[in-house]
Design a protein around this nucleic acid. Structure first.
Length: 279
DNA sequence: CCTTGAACCTGCGGGC
DNA sequence: TGCCCGCAGGTTCAAG
């Protein structure tokens, strides 16, 4: 489920609720997700005060006053809910934090591809999950020239390269397809063959698509906070993702001739594109 | 180093 | 109705 915009939205929803709060109790309801919960996690959390909630790549960072950062990743199916006192855990509620303000933060993850880590704030960047990460797509470090340099000589398809977090973080399967459509680039094009101009266009497309989704998440957040407190699953409108056979939007190409939006499999993942518009 | 493919796990929807 | 299949927003590891 969560790509960068969804994780960003979750963080924005969590920060005002968690900031400055003491963790009274941490509940770990099974031994592992994708990996075991860290040893002594419970004692490291209980009594600690949360300074703020932020994001790196698709990781949620909950910075504590103890020099540690509680890191959560939502995997494919993870969600975070903000509940109240007396909340009864449901199926797949694996990890819960009871805060001083009576709120209960619940991590639910059916498939358990998510992860919970505890890292030292001072050396976070050296931790195995962070050490090789590429730039944030919305930062100035992510640019046309950077992308050209980073993709030089790469023979993998550009779609696959965009989803490689060593190239750029946060671009998952949905937004990779959406960005390539907006940039007019075929997902099958060899990554190293993207010219300077098209790399610049692609960078701008990725930024635009992600920013728009974050804006949408922001408005969805308001509605959801009022309704249920659920953070993490949003109804976005996509242009090509999961639109097989539909007419290419905003494009005059003949759907009878082109068959509309096509689906192919790359690296075991579905890609969606318009063969007429994307070259 | 690169690239590919499988693995992790549960749930859902479609076809029969 | 049930069963089997393919598919799902991510990451990591092994093998070539």
């Amino acid at each position: 489920m969560p790509e960068l915009p969804e994780v960003e939205t979750v963080c924005r929803g969590l920060d005002p609720v968690m900031r400055g709060q003491k963790i009274l109790r941490a509940e770990i309801r099974r031994k592992d997700l994708r990996k075991p919960f860290p040893p002594r996690l419970k004692s490291a959390l209980e009594g600690a005060t949360i300074q703020h909630v932020s994001r790196r790549a698709k990781y949620i960072l909950i910075t504590l006053d103890t020099g540690k950062i509680l890191v959560m990743h939502l995997g494919m199916s993870g969600r975070v809910q903000i509940e109240g006192e007396g909340y009864t855990p449901k199926t797949h509620d694996h990890f819960m934090l009871h805060l001083k303000n009576k709120r209960v933060i619940v991590l639910n993850d059916a498939r358990r591809f998510g992860i919970v880590l505890l890292v030292d704030a001072a050396t976070m960047d050296d931790h195995p999950v962070f050490v090789a990460l590429g730039p944030e797509p919305l930062s100035n470090d992510f640019s046309g020239p950077y992308l050209v340099e980073r993709l030089r000589g790469k023979k993998v398809a550009i779609k696959t390269a965009l989803m490689d977090p060593r190239v750029v973080v946060g671009v998952g399967n949905i937004y990779a397809s959406e960005s390539l459509f907006l940039a007019g680039i075929s997902p099958e094009r060899e990554a190293g063959s993207i010219s300077g101009d098209r790399a610049e266009k692609l960078v701008q497309a990725i930024r635009k698509v992600l920013k728009k989704a974050i804006e949408k998440g922001g408005s969805t957040l308001k509605d959801h906070r009022q309704a249920s407190g659920e953070l993490g699953y949003f109804q976005h409108h996509f242009t090509v993702y999961d639109k097989v056979g539909e007419a290419c939007p905003g494009c005059s190409c003949d759907i009878v001739k082109t068959g509309g939006i096509r689906r192919i499999v790359q690296g075991g993942r579905s890609s969606f594109y318009c063969a007429e518009k994307q070259k």
